[in-house]
Amino acid sequence: MTLRWEAFLEAVRGRGKYDTAVEAERAARVVLALLGAHLVGQIRAQLAARLPEHLALILLNPLQATEPLAPERFVRATAAWIEGASETTALWDIGAVLSTVADAAGEDLLRRILFQLPPGYDILFGRPQDHTP
């Protein structure tokens, strides 16, 4: 099921405690552009199908990444792309957006997304996994 634009932004806005929808949209655009650079093939297409069309296009036409970013570098990259952001505020933005993405994706797709990403992204999506042997 695809989330409507308003519902997605309202979820991000509520989770990020943003004053305006513009702030929520800015965070969503940056985080999804960076995430899209790290997902490939059917996984990216399946996730895009569950997002509002406007955000799906951002995910499908991502910023170019030369290598997968570790979660810490993903946070730094997000901070660099959001004017006035620090790593702390970028982490907040990422959590608001990716937890909403995780809800839209559902558990099965999210598991496959996390499999494509470097270890540690589960926490960014707000879904810490048990890594004990």
Score class of each variant (00 low, 15 high):
residue 119 P to R: 13
residue 92 W to I: 12
residue 91 L to Q: 14
residue 84 G to C: 02
residue 125 F to C: 09
residue 85 A to G: 03
residue 92 W to Q: 15
residue 110 L to E: 00
residue 11 A to R: 04
residue 63 L to E: 15
residue 98 L to M: 15
residue 16 G to Q: 00
residue 120 G to L: 04
residue 21 A to S: 06
residue 58 I to W: 00
residue 64 Q to R: 14
residue 90 A to N: 00
residue 71 P to H: 14
residue 27 A to C: 06
residue 35 L to T: 01
residue 56 A to T: 08
residue 112 R to K: 14
residue 109 L to K: 11
residue 104 A to E: 00
residue 39 L to N: 06
residue 58 I to D: 01
residue 72 E to D: 15
residue 123 I to E: 12
residue 68 P to D: 06
residue 30 V to N: 01
residue 112 R to Y: 09
residue 19 D to I: 05
residue 68 P to V: 07
residue 95 G to F: 05
residue 130 D to M: 12
residue 112 R to C: 02
residue 99 S to F: 05
residue 18 Y to S: 03
residue 101 V to D: 01
residue 3 L to R: 08
residue 129 Q to I: 12
residue 67 E to V: 15
residue 31 V to F: 00
residue 98 L to G: 09
residue 112 R to N: 14
residue 51 L to S: 07
residue 129 Q to S: 11
residue 114 L to K: 12
residue 10 E to Y: 08
residue 28 A to S: 14
residue 62 P to N: 08
residue 84 G to D: 04
residue 107 E to K: 13
residue 130 D to A: 13
residue 99 S to N: 09
residue 102 A to T: 06
residue 102 A to F: 07
residue 49 A to I: 07
residue 75 V to R: 00
residue 118 P to H: 12
residue 32 L to Y: 03
residue 71 P to V: 11
residue 60 L to Y: 04
residue 73 R to K: 15
residue 26 R to Y: 02
residue 116 Q to I: 03
residue 95 G to D: 07
residue 118 P to M: 13
residue 72 E to K: 10
residue 88 T to L: 09
residue 88 T to H: 08
residue 18 Y to R: 04
residue 114 L to R: 12
residue 72 E to S: 12
residue 27 A to S: 11
residue 43 I to G: 02
residue 53 E to W: 14
residue 8 F to C: 11
residue 15 R to V: 01
residue 131 H to W: 09
residue 71 P to N: 14
residue 53 E to V: 15
residue 14 G to W: 06
residue 126 G to T: 08
residue 109 L to Y: 08
residue 57 L to D: 15
residue 130 D to R: 13
residue 9 L to N: 03
residue 35 L to K: 01
residue 52 P to Y: 05
residue 87 E to N: 07
residue 64 Q to C: 08
residue 21 A to F: 06
residue 51 L to H: 04
residue 86 S to Q: 08
residue 22 V to Y: 10
residue 65 A to Y: 04
residue 16 G to C: 06
residue 121 Y to P: 05
residue 29 R to H: 09
residue 55 L to P: 01
residue 56 A to Y: 03
residue 59 L to N: 03
residue 107 E to R: 14
residue 125 F to W: 09
residue 114 L to E: 12
residue 132 T to W: 11
residue 17 K to S: 13
residue 11 A to H: 02
residue 6 E to A: 14
residue 57 L to H: 14
residue 79 A to N: 01
residue 63 L to Q: 12
residue 95 G to L: 11
residue 76 R to S: 11
residue 20 T to P: 01
residue 15 R to P: 02
residue 113 I to T: 08
residue 133 P to K: 10
residue 128 P to D: 10
residue 86 S to T: 15
residue 25 E to I: 04
residue 18 Y to I: 00
residue 86 S to I: 05
residue 95 G to M: 05
residue 120 G to S: 10
residue 19 D to A: 15
residue 116 Q to G: 02
residue 76 R to H: 04
residue 88 T to G: 03
residue 123 I to A: 14
residue 81 W to L: 15
residue 94 I to A: 05
residue 74 F to T: 01
